[in-house]
Amino acid sequence: MALIEIDDLHVTFEAKGRPVHAVRGVSLAVEVRESYGLVGESGSGKSTILRAICGMAPVTGGAIRIDGRALAPRRDRGFARRVQMVFQDPYASLHPRHTVDRTLGEPLAIHGLARGAERGRRIVQALADVGLDAAFRFRFPHQLSGGQRQRVAIARALMLEPEILLLDEPTSALDASVQAEALNLLSRLRAERGLTFLMVSHDLAVIDHMCDRLTVMKEGRAVENLDHAQLARHDMKASYTRELFAATTERIAAAE
């Protein structure tokens, strides 16, 4: 049985009085300890799927199951212990008036874990796990670079030791040089902790680097499901996937 199962998911927003059908019947299954990618251009509904899992988007049809159990309409604390998310923009996802210490301590405080000195020890450990020195502990987000902020955001997502990490374009707001570092950090953490990733990106190269299997999305629909080997063999059926792949290889060639 798959860890995350999404079955014929529909999400419809109300925007300016008109319904917007952002996700139209997407199904996928993510196995335990797998890294699964969702790729597509902006507006294809891939981030919306992550938000739907977290209860931040109005699900109008289909089902999301974790461990075979349908999610409660309101995500509870138990859900928070199992599923965490890393947001796209590290400039927006950290509270501007909280120190790194407060940001990382908050999940522990919410769940009543590790008080006093023990909490401090876990915060320093979490910083070390993402490659940040303890000297960053009492800094404010505006005193950090983009890459450092995203490391803090990753550390925060891991504070509750979840098994599933939802990654919403975790590197697209970072410089190219920092991107690779952040991706390698995520790969290392996944290997060390046996995490399951569901990762969204518009960049096929990133997904190819990170994921075992992927779904290509366009206009709210799943165009094609591929695994890593098929991608390597250029064994794709849908013409849209081929276009996306060609655009990525062209870009990489141009960069080299």
């Binding site: 977290c54 908050e106 769940h111 925060r156």
Partner: peptide
């Protein structure tokens, strides 16, 4: 609607904690 509020909600924080600890400082 900011991501940092969504993040703390996703950590399981209740409305009281979010309003007092995260919205009011802003």
């Amino acid at each position: 609607g900011a991501d940092f509020i969504a993040a703390v909600r996703l950590q399981g924080a209740g409305a009281g904690r979010i309003v007092v600890g995260h919205v009011m400082p802003m």
